[in-house]
Design a protein around this nucleic acid. Structure first.
Lengths: 213, 213
DNA sequence: TAGATTGTTAATCGATTAACAATC
DNA sequence: TAGATTGTTAATCGATTAACAATC
């Protein structure tokens, strides 16, 4: 049963479901109906049922959804039941902040290497991982079969770096540089454009203050 | 002419237009047609024209759009022609990374204060701004009429902190904590849920490898 | 004036919501 | 069995794309 091409709108909501289900699980809640979840999450019960049914029937009529089961299923869908190796390219504050998220480790993301072009950082450690010269990146990625590269470098360097990464067989790039990367279709890219996000905030402040301009 | 309620889908695209127009401006490009922009940005020319026309006519038939004029107009729409004062709550790596973005200063975001609950950080400086005890936040925000608070603190602290911020008259919260904030409608919130973003990446890796599962 | 390209209306597509039959 | 709630189809809504008249 090939149930592919699920819209990115649906995918974008899965981590949020996952977050709420994790909270419920921790509180010891065993079962939940789409209506109850709807009240907590402020989305329609209909959307919740539609979203889950993209992946098969996780619920039971008259009962609702088993929280733990649903949580586990979503973690499988998201692929965070498996381990993913990851390197950080750019060991500045942002790179260090990301390396430091203990939650990522819990979700199966294993931090394997860090690279920078600043010689002062060579040999310093981020969570037991040594910062290496960026020239050693290609060999390291190939040798260790790294899946994900986190790009926390300035935008000028990001495009050529992405190109190099593709050459070493990387599977995915988590891009924090303020630039769009142009990579082949088989490479997954997820952008975090912080400046775009801040501009949206600015727009909304502005609009709220001057509603008819 | 009250032209309000522009969909967030449109708003989300504005910073990207702005980025590309900035690049074109730097390259010395004077005018551009929706079709040319479409080729560069990989969105339809139709969408470009529709998007801009939400805000009035910025182009000219038979000519296209003047790059500098369009750039300036979008910066006005986004409200980044004005200054916005900002404090960072949580002076860890993430907070420092954000404070360090020189681009934000260029876009009118003025970094006024930093707060943390770690006494070791009190008095240390981030870009000439002293880190203060988080207890002093409320007085500081009120006194200086701060508009935006950047929340780079753990999720447990984020909800009560947001509540406090609302009490001091903050206008907007840029939330990096992995939790949804519940604040009144007049407070603008923009979330950056990094773990959600990483899970989406994980999903896409997974789907690409196992397309029919 | 003729050609180019916008601004805008109409058509299409996709996503969300509503409704209800299936079923636990 | 009766009540509850899902899974799923149908209806609605909104966003994107296509088409073309307006106009520079």
């Amino acid at each position: 049963m090939s149930e592919k091409d699920i819209s990115q709108a649906v995918i974008s909501r899965l981590p949020r479901y996952f977050r709420y289900l994790g909270d419920l699980k921790e509180k010891g809640v065993e079962r939940i109906s789409s209506q109850e979840l709807s009240d907590i999450m402020k989305v329609t019960a209909s959307q919740i049922r539609q979203d889950f049914n993209n992946f098969g029937g996780f619920g039971q009529q008259g009962y609702g959804y088993n929280v733990t089961y649903l949580y586990d299923e979503i973690s499988k869908i998201l692929g965070i039941d498996k381990q993913h190796s990851l390197v950080i390219i750019g060991a500045g504050h942002l790179g260090q902040a990301i390396a430091g998220y203990t939650n990522f480790t819990r979700r199966g993301f294993v931090f394997k290497g860090a690279f920078d072009c600043n010689p002062n950082l060579y040999g310093t450690k981020i969570r037991d991982v040594e910062v290496r010269p960026v020239d050693e990146m290609e060999e390291f990625v190939k040798k260790n079969g790294i899946e994900i590269a986190v790009l926390t470098i300035p935008k000028e360097q990001a495009v050529p770096m992405a190109h190099k990464l593709v050459g070493c067989g990387i599977k995915a790039i988590w891009n924090f540089a303020h630039v769009d990367l142009d990579v082949p279709n088989n490479i997954q890219v997820e952008n975090v454009h912080l400046s775009d996000s801040l501009m949206k905030l600015s727009y909304n402040i502005n609009r709220y203050e001057n509603p008819n301009k």
